[in-house]
Simulated scan of single mutants.
Amino acid sequence: MIMHPLPEGVPLRRTSRRLLGGLLALGMTVAVSACGEESTDTTGSEPAEGGWSFTDDLGTTVELPEAPTRIAGLNDLAASLWNYGLEPVATFGQTSAEDDVAFEGRDLSDVAIVGSSYGEIDLEALAAADPDVIVTTIYPVDSSGEIPADTAGYGFTDQAQQEQVAEIAPIITIAYRGSAADVIERVVELADALGVDTGSGTVADARADFETASEELTETASSGVSVLPVFATEADGWWMAKASDDPQLALYQELGVNFVDPGGDGYFWNSVGWEEVPNHPSDVLLYSLRFSMTPEEIAAQPTAALLPAIEAAQLYPWKYIGPDYVAQAAYMEELSGYLSEAQRVTG
């Protein structure tokens, strides 16, 4: 997230508008061709004549003289590729990689952290990391799953910033929509194109662990306890995620997790003020680990304290982790543990 879109009202610190003319003088030559209506195959890469190519989920084909080895990008996707053995040279995202649970246990000493707030990317530092490609994700604009042509990739404030980044290295974009099961497979295809053996070894083992974790989650979810993922801020109140709009949550829902429908007409979130929080009870609350209030701070809110899940101390972390077998298997095991110990406390 979950990777996921930031709720409206969460402030974004914008990167400066410095015109880095020096970037244009770096002599980086890449061939990037946007595929229009004539090309709709985004299933993987086709080897260019004597080179390397990959067609991403926007229909853009990145072509290079040889397979890229120096990869930079958004924390979520960079962490997933690292789980398959591809250590990034640079990362950026909503938070610093040092504070991102997706990188827990990783030695980041050789990774340039070029952004630690959404849209704040140090272009000079990114250029100095000398990436061959830059990877990111992109979200639809609504529940239809549509991604308009002028939509900037996740992690970029707008198209102008994205174009500046593309001057450093070509951008590969993976769409984060539908079920994470499909997104995971797409990332495997990208890893395969980048030279990872996805049919055996680490990836095959991770796939087996993922399948086991999926079965376990289905079993524990059969208890029927209701689950509500939330992003809580003292000033803006309660943001409740819609499982069908979040690929990670959609996957868990497919496996049987009973998510509460928070209502509302908006995409991804339904937000309410603190006075309305008691109207959205659940057996379990999953609280965001990114920017949200802590469980103690949530429980200290008078209206939130009335919720059955809080009265039963059934609050557990909602981790935004990458679309890969390793990370998802690990979190599904955690979620299974939460659901197995939780009791039904709503009417």
Rank of each mutant, 00 (worst) to 15 (best):
M3K: 02
H4F: 03
P5D: 07
P7H: 04
P11S: 09
L19A: 10
G21K: 00
L23T: 03
M28Y: 03
T29G: 01
T29K: 15
A31L: 12
A31H: 12
V32T: 15
S33I: 14
A34W: 08
E37K: 14
S39K: 09
S39Q: 14
T43F: 00
T43Y: 00
A48C: 12
S53G: 11
S53F: 09
F54A: 00
G59Y: 05
G59M: 07
A72F: 04
L74H: 15
L74R: 14
N75Q: 08
L77D: 06
W82D: 03
G85K: 07
E87Y: 09
A102K: 03
A102T: 08
G105Q: 00
L108F: 07
D110F: 01
V111D: 02
A112S: 13
A112G: 02
I113V: 14
Y118S: 03
G119V: 11
A129F: 03
P131K: 11
D132W: 04
V133Y: 04
I138V: 15
P140N: 08
V141Y: 10
V141L: 13
S144Y: 10
G145N: 15
G145I: 12
G155N: 09
A160N: 05
V165D: 05
V165L: 08
A166E: 15
I171A: 06
R177N: 08
S179M: 02
D182A: 15
D182T: 15
V183I: 08
R186N: 13
A208L: 13
D209P: 01
S214L: 02
S214P: 08
V227L: 06
V227P: 07
L228R: 04
E234T: 12
E234L: 10
W238I: 09
A243Y: 00
D246P: 00
Q248Y: 09
Q248M: 09
A250Y: 04
L251G: 01
V257P: 07
D261R: 05
D261Q: 09
P262K: 05
G266R: 10
W269C: 02
V272K: 10
W274T: 11
P278A: 07
P278L: 10
P278W: 09
N279W: 02
D283P: 06
S288P: 01
S288W: 02
L289P: 00
R290E: 06
M293Q: 13
T294R: 14
T294V: 07
E297H: 12
A304L: 12
A304S: 09
I310R: 11
Q314E: 11
Q314N: 12
K319H: 13
K319Q: 12
P323H: 08
M332G: 04
E333Y: 01
L335N: 11
S336Y: 04
G337D: 12
S340Q: 11
A342W: 04
R344V: 14
T346I: 15
